[in-house]
Amino acid sequence: MTATAGQQSTVNICEAQAAGQHHLVSARGLRKTFHENKVLDNVDFDVDSGEVVTIIGRSGSGKSTLLRVIAGLTEPEDGDVCLDGRLVRSKGQRTDEWNAGASLVGMVFQSYTLWPHMNVYDNLTLAPRKVLHMSKSEASDRAAIALKEVGMEEFIKANVSQLSGGQRQRVAIARALMMRPRLILCDEITSALDPPVAAEVLGVLTRLKHEEGLAICLVTHDMAFAAKAADRVVFFSEGVIKVNASPHEAFEECGNAELKSFVDAVRFG
C-alpha cells in the first residue's frame, strides 16, 4: 500500500470511492515530518465498516502518528482523508466536513485517560451532556448500556482510583462508545496490562465488532491477537506500510523479510 497516488488528481477520494466499494476510512498520501524525520511517508490506509485492523511495527515506525492523524490530534503536512463518504481532510487541511466526519471516530489511549476527579458515571456522561446536549436520563440510560457492553455495569458509581488497569481501559472504551462512533482507534491500550487482563480487554473489542459492527483500528504488540482476532494486519516500517494482508497471509505466507524478523524479535524477545 505504498501507492504513489497522484496528489494532483482532481477527483477527490470520496468520489473515487463511491463507484467501487465504500470504505469507512480512506486515507491517501498522508505525510508527516517531525524535524526532517519522515514519520508518515505517503501512506495510504483504509478501514472498512466492522473491520478489525491491527497495526504492528517497531517502536518509532509511525504507528501512533497514523492513528493520531486520523483522529485529528496531529496535523499532517499532506494527504486526503475520507470518513464514511465525507472528505474531512484535503491536501493536509481540514475541510468543512471535519466535525461531522470526526464525530464517527473514538479513541482509547495507552495511558489511563479516565478523568480521575470524576467517577465512572461522570466520565461517561460529561461529553454526551455537554456536547450532544443529551438529557440526564438519556445519558444515564446510555451509560448503563455502554458499561454493560464492556462488562462494567456494576461500576457506574465507582471512583476511577478504585479501578484496576484493565477495568479503566474497559471504562475508557465505554466512554468512547457513548458518542456512538463507527470506528475506535486503540493505541497500545493493553501494553500496561497483564496478559490475561489484556486478553479480556481485547475480547471486549472483538465482541463490539461482532455485536455492534464497530470498526477497530488497533496498534498492538500482541501478535497472538493480531494473528487470531484481526481481519487485517498492517506492518509499518519507517513511515511506510510494508505489508497489508490477512493475518494468515501476513504471518504464514509473507515473503517480507523485515516482517519476519520483526515477528521473531517480538516472539523470542
Binding site: A71, N99, F109, Q110, T113, A127, K130, M178, M179
Partner: peptide, 15 residues
C-alpha cells in the same frame, strides 16, 4: 494534567 487526558476530551468533542 497529563496531555492524554485532555486529548481524550478532545476526541469526545469537548470544546
Amino acid at each position: 494534567v497529563p496531555v492524554e487526558q485532555v486529548e481524550a476530551g478532545q476526541m469526545l468533542r469537548l470544546s
